[in-house]
């Protein structure tokens, strides 16, 4: 009987519990066109990676609470002083001082537009989004960078106003907890588990 690998941090170290890999038999690869001679073998591999969000953890925690956090350089000596970064950058890319964390949920609700987009019918293994995926890059007034995300409802257009929605029910604690809908979308139109 196997159990999901689970991890906690205790006394400053990772504590691992459960199974982090599964053992499977190698299989021969044979050449169907040449007398079934041996070409090679398969190497099954199924394992769980463990990964810290470090200084970005509060950003991902906030998504599950319906908040969009960004950061801002407040270093008076920095040439980029006042720059707001979304994606959330822990340190200012110019002065490397620790940025201040700001809540930009309101800005996102009022001043977000689609900078560019892509509707993609394909995906890779381990994809969790419904297809086609409507990738969008969201531009905010007063923010120096542009956020990569996806449109949950509607069809994207460059310049279209969008508002954020959050997966507050059963969050994944990943960037997938944040998505966008066209401005004017009503709460009852949102899929289950998502809210403004």
């Amino acid at each position: 009987m196997s159990s999901y690998g689970q991890v906690q941090v205790k006394n400053g170290r990772y504590k691992f519990r459960g199974d982090f890999h599964r053992l499977e038999q190698h299989m021969p690869i044979r050449d169907a066109d040449n007398g079934w001679r041996l070409v090679g073998v398969t190497k099954p591999r199924d394992m769980t990676y463990v990964h810290t969000y470090g200084g970005e953890a509060e950003f991902f925690e906030a998504l599950s609470q319906g908040k969009l956090l960004a950061t801002k350089c407040d270093n008076p000596a920095c040439e980029s002083k006042g720059s707001i970064f979304q994606p959330f950058r822990i340190h200012c890319p110019d002065c490397l001082a620790k940025n201040a964390v700001i809540d930009m949920t309101d800005v996102a609700k009022k001043k977000a537009t689609i900078h560019t987009f892509m509707v993609c019918a394909r995906s890779g293994a381990f994809n969790m989004l419904d297809k086609p995926i409507r990738f969008i890059n969201v531009e905010f007034e007063g923010v120096s960078t542009i956020l990569f995300s996806y449109l949950l409802l509607g069809e994207p257009k460059i310049g279209m106003r969008v508002v954020p929605v959050f997966k507050r029910y059963n969050p994944t604690y990943t960037i997938l907890d944040l998505s966008w809908v066209p401005a004017g979308t009503k709460a009852e139109e949102l899929p289950e588990g998502y809210s403004f």
Partner: peptide, 30 residues
């Protein structure tokens, strides 16, 4: 596709579709 998508940011991009073409093609669209 999944392995190629690992060349995008693993927290901010790859979880979305695990498809690198999608991350690239937004630029093509613009």
């Amino acid at each position: 596709n999944f392995l190629i998508a690992s060349a995008a940011d693993r927290d901010w991009e790859s979880p979305m579709g695990q498809i690198y073409t999608g991350y690239y093609a937004v630029m093509a669209q613009k």
